[in-house]
Amino acid sequence: MKSYVKLVNFEFNRYFKIYVVLVGITILCQITGVIFEGLRFVKEAQETMQHEMITMEQYAMNYGPISMYDFIETIWFIGPVAICIVTLLIYMLFIWYRDWYGKHTFIYRLLMLPVERLNIYFAKVTAIFLFVLGLVSLQLILLIIENNILTRLVPEALLMEMSITSLLTFDILIILYPPTFSEFLLYYGAGFLFILVVFTMILLERSFRIKGILLAACYGGVIFALLLAPILINESLNDYFYPIEILAIEGILALMIGTVSIMLSRFLLNKKITV
């Protein structure tokens, strides 16, 4: 356990610089964005009000007030979120492959540590998951700050004030911040399972190289088909199962896939891995 925690800490520190940059980009983009969008809206509203000689209330009635939801749809908000998601997806591959390539093949050292090799796998999974949770928490704090900034920049009559809880029911935010614990388990469990499967596919490739690419593709394909099967079967049966039953079947399947992925990764790391 101690070595696992040390490995997580080590993995976290290795990515920390890139992570700080990501956090910086997100904060900078979103705070600049909310100020820019807020001021732009006020300026445009004032110009229209002057030109049409109408009051703020009339402007809000004719053209609609601004809300945080308008900001969430802009590139200022979506851009950094997309950058973070793409970077983390790339990092899921990079976290393994960087240890194999280059003059300094750190994978030798990792595999020669006097610890269960599965700890290396779990440390990398945990590090990725911690990065995700960290960014999601940051986004929540930023939403509160951005909401505050918008309230200060835009006159009350031109602003449709939104509580953070109502804001979190929109689009991508409902996935990032699920309203119920079961939905949290569903979305984050799916994310966790995705990491386990991708890591197992990477280890298949690292163990069998060219043949491994084929094996990894087959493994990913079979899992995708397995997860899709209950939905397709239910459709062909004209929705014979209740949604909750489909969810339960998917949950059991996910647990099985997760267990198989971990066991397969353990086998590959102990018996098949090649440096």
Partner: peptide
């Protein structure tokens, strides 16, 4: 790995 140390022909640290 507590009994045997391997020193490969390249360094194994980042």
């Amino acid at each position: 790995f507590n009994k045997v140390a391997f020193i490969p022909d390249m360094i194994t640290m980042p």
